[in-house]
């Protein structure tokens, strides 16, 4: 294993303070963009005003995601960094397997949540944002949702630190709450950048709210509040089951799991000398 000094040098402390500032700026960019978009949402959604909101949403959310990546990525230990590609591949492959099972959800964050449980909120946020960026190589429509995925990874890590993954029945509750936040943050992207959602079921729900006279943003936010919490509750439950199924020797090699006792049970016994 790599040898690292136990105390931080002066330069190390400055670097970690700079990273903290970048993290806060990234979170502020995402939150500020959301508030701005809600306050200034165009009453008349012709193409021009929506294009304005789309540019603000894209710029603010992508800036936030990039700042988070720049802040977190260089500080991740190599053992966590090699998990990021694994998480992205799991997001894609498990999403496909679940899709082929015929259930009406999309489950595209299983890998992100699993990494957040094993390696903590910072790694989860970086994984979420990076997955969106790398996956946009094949599907550019996921790129604008980078901030939402980062939020899912971050909240999953916080839930794991708070011990919500120690009991199986608490994980879906954490997922449900995460889904509320993630859905609300992603709604302006769906509304202003794409003008709607691409699924059949979600599209029908948005149409129903529009038929009642809601604005596009309100209709998509309500639709997100119906589908996202359910989806994330299932995703968190699956991630919890996967984490429980891993051998303890594997899970306890992660310092985050050992330090915050993320999963129930004791560390594997070391043989007596």
């Amino acid at each position: 294993m790599s040898s690292s000094p136990l105390t931080l040098s002066e330069a190390g402390r400055t670097a970690s303070r700079n990273r903290r500032i970048l993290e806060i700026l990234g979170a502020a960019a995402i939150a500020g963009t959301y508030v701005f978009l809600v306050l200034t949402q165009p009453a008349d959604i012709a193409n021009g005003p929506v294009s304005f909101s789309a540019l603000v949403a894209l710029g603010g959310f992508l800036l936030g995601a990039v700042l988070l990546i720049v802040a977190v990525l260089p500080a991740l230990p190599t053992s966590t960094l090699v998990l990021v590609p694994v998480a992205l591949v799991l997001n894609v492959v498990l999403g496909q397997i679940m899709g082929s099972s015929g259930l009406p959800f999309y489950f595209d964050a299983i890998g992100t949540v699993l990494i957040a449980v094993l390696a903590g909120p910072a790694a989860g946020a970086a994984t979420g944002a990076l997955s969106s960026i790398v996956w946009s190589f094949f599907n550019p429509t996921v790129l604008p949702f980078a901030a939402g995925s980062a939020l899912i990874g971050f909240l999953a890590g916080l839930a794991a630190r708070g011990g919500l993954f120690r009991r199986f029945y608490l994980a879906p509750v954490a997922g449900f709450i995460t889904g509320i936040f993630a859905g609300v943050v992603s709604a302006p992207i769906a509304a202003f950048v794409f003008g709607g959602t691409s699924g059949v079921g979600t599209g029908a729900i948005v149409s129903a709210f529009r038929a009642m006279g809601d604005t596009l943003m309100a209709a998509i936010t309500k639709q997100a509040l119906i589908s996202d919490p359910m989806d994330k509750a299932i995703v968190f439950a699956i991630a919890a089951l996967l984490a429980y199924a891993l051998p303890r020797r594997t899970t306890f090699q992660f310092p985050f799991v050992r330090r915050f006792r993320v999963l129930a049970g004791k560390a594997p016994a070391t043989p007596a000398a």
């Binding site: 053992s79 998990l83 694994v86 498990l94 891993l246």
Partner: peptide
């Protein structure tokens, strides 16, 4: 899924040590 995830995380650990 369980064997897939287990294998991936095991491999990632080995790759991390090799990179380090």
């Amino acid at each position: 899924m369980v064997p897939l995830v287990q294998g991936l995380i095991e491999d990632a650990g080995i790759r991390g040590q090799a990179l380090e």
